[in-house]
């Protein structure tokens, strides 16, 4: 039979048209150009992220070679002697972010519950917009406000009260200046609250109404019904909190302006501290010598990798909840 050569011929044509179909399913030249152009721009995005990883890694090589894993474990940050350890920055970043979450999570939940479950439409919309405006205020403005309003307020009222009430805890001992870990954490809390509450709003909206009706039909009070909704949205709420964490870890200007910028690990929340982001912001332009600069770039690499993982986890959690209802969501 002559079926074999015919088949080969078919395959050849088939392969050729596979390529053409990828470029232009419609067989139109303009479409091929259009699709290649758009794909090229999309590829550029991939190239940017890849080159970000490469550039940060290459520039931090001197520091990685010199210190290895000790960079993460060492407490000494002494540019003059050329000793660089990131532990104080890692501690400051994690501690200030945790303080921020501790304060902002209950608030964000409260705001989201109020706006989704309780407030009538004509209140929820404008009030929701006002809360979102908090996220529109630039970081440096929060910093300015933090230096001149929040820090004096904490120094004169809140910190003395905390010291006299809980002074037996090492957390609340030490000199009261208004500039330190606690102030940084509170500023961060104000900054991440609108972000967390916006995502929680999306998550709560995605919980089916039948859950609420079922709870109410069983005789639940309003609050008991809300608890059912919260349990339903729990993974998404966890995602929202982690998204807020990602934002808090990388926040720079406001924290730099109020945290005191001293590379030390102190149990006291009143003491000055330092975060990874504020170390880069503060010392990058004054870094003399390749090793110093490369140590700062390595801090940037650490921050990049950590926020990458944290945001990835958050996105999967939020997406799993909101996709079921097809919610477009502002949950970025």
């Amino acid at each position: 039979m002559s079926a074999v050569p015919e088949n080969e011929g078919m395959n050849f044509v088939g392969q050729g048209s596979t390529w053409r179909r990828v470029l232009s399913p419609t067989g139109n030249t303009g479409d091929a150009v259009f699709r290649v152009l758009m794909f090229g721009v999309a590829l550029l995005m991939v190239a940017i992220v890849v080159s970000m990883v490469v550039a940060l890694t290459v520039d931090s090589m001197p520091s990685i070679r010199q210190f290895g894993f000790n960079f993460l474990k060492s407490q000494r940050w002494d540019p003059i002697k050329g000793e660089f350890g990131a532990l104080p920055f890692i501690y400051g970043t994690v501690a200030s972010s945790l303080i921020a979450l501790l304060i902002s999570v209950p608030f964000s939940l409260g705001i989201a519950i109020f706006l989704v479950e309780q407030a009538p439409h004509y209140i929820a919309r404008p009030v929701g917009f006002l809360v979102e405006l908090l996220a529109a205020i630039p970081s440096v403005v929060y910093g300015l406000w933090g230096i001149f309003v929040l820090a004096p307020f904490l120094r004169n009222y809140i910190e003395p009260a905390l010291a006299s009430a809980f002074g037996w805890l090492p957390l609340f001992q030490g000199s009261i200046t208004g500039i330190g870990l606690l102030t940084g954490g509170i500023i961060l809390a104000i900054m991440v609250t609108p972000i967390i509450s916006a995502v929680v709003r999306d998550v709560l909206t995605a919980v089916p109404g039948s859950q609420r009706e079922a709870a109410l039909a069983l005789g639940a009070t309003k609050w008991e019904m809300i608890r059912v909704v919260l349990v339903n949205g729990a993974p998404g709420i966890a995602g929202a909190v982690i998204l807020g964490l990602g934002r808090a870890l990388g926040e720079t200007m406001a924290v730099t302006m109020v945290i005191g910028n001293r590379a030390q690990i102190s149990l006291s929340l009143f003491d000055p501290s330092y975060t990874i982001a504020s170390a880069i912001a503060n010392e990058f332009t004054e870094a003399t010598g390749d090793l110093y600069l490369s140590a700062l770039v390595e801090l940037g690499l650490i921050l990049f990798l950590v926020t990458f993982v944290v945001n990835g986890i958050a996105r999967v959690l939020v997406w799993n909840v909101t996709r079921k209802t097809g919610g477009v969501g502002r949950a970025a």
């Binding site: 995005m45 940017i48 992220v49 970000m52 550039a55 940060l56 990602g246 870890l249 990388g250 926040e251 720079t252 982001a277 880069i280 912001a281 990058f284 700062l296 770039v297 940037g300 921050l303 990049f304 926020t307 990458f308 944290v310 945001n311 990835g312 996105r315 970025a332």
Partner: peptide
């Protein structure tokens, strides 16, 4: 693209 959204702006500056 989502990764780019989450990158702290200070890291963008370093890059």
């Amino acid at each position: 693209v989502d990764t780019l959204t989450g990158i702290p702006s200070i890291v963008t500056g370093v890059f």
